[in-house]
Design a protein around this nucleic acid. Sequence first.
DNA 1: TAAAGAAGTTTATTTTATAAACCAAATTAT
DNA 2: ATAATTTGGTTTATAAAATAAACTTCTTTA
Lengths: 96, 96
Amino acid sequence: MMFPTLDPLLHSELRLAIMSLLISDVEAEFPYIKEQTGATAGNLSVQIDKLSAADYIKVEKSFKGKKPCTICRITPTGLKAFEDYVKALKSYLDVK
Amino acid sequence: MMFPTLDPLLHSELRLAIMSLLISDVEAEFPYIKEQTGATAGNLSVQIDKLSAADYIKVEKSFKGKKPCTICRITPTGLKAFEDYVKALKSYLDVK
DNA sequence: TAAAGAAGTTTATTTTATAAACCAAATTAT
DNA sequence: ATAATTTGGTTTATAAAATAAACTTCTTTA
């Protein structure tokens, strides 16, 4: 087949946005990701879980003063997957 | 919001592959698209309908000798949508 | 101390992708 | 000649995914 399969975990608007953020920002808190992506909290929570379950990101729960704080970071696995995804996408887009 | 929405009609592996083919090849027959994408006929038929309903492609049904022949071509609308999609995707991918 | 807000999670709903089943005509084999 | 297979699809059913609504717990403010 001439078109490589696109990692379904990354071929999702919200999950891709999350990963994109975490590549630039190294780490990001839940509310920040929510604001930057415009996602609802529920949707974001679900998609973060999926990325986390695949070990594409690590999620660290702590407290910031008295409030819960969820920090996300990309993993090497996630970075690799993202790079592979971009490479794969290019065979769909670089069409000339 | 910092991430533009990705046209859901194009943000689909098979539909994107179809569009990608039609940009390089100008026109393509159903069996050729099927072979190039590795899709099942059913899936391909459905996705072609969707692209056609949005006027991203035109579908022309004729006969080749005695056999039915379905030819697909991209429309200006489709080309524009593809270009916009690529542009939008870049804000997710060009991350450095 | 009641109401509102923050930070999420869980669950339900809608949408989408995909394949399985089907159909009609043509070709090939018996 | 006719039965079986292949070609070129379409329609329908199923499985998976995305998304939002509803809920929870704790905190802050009125």
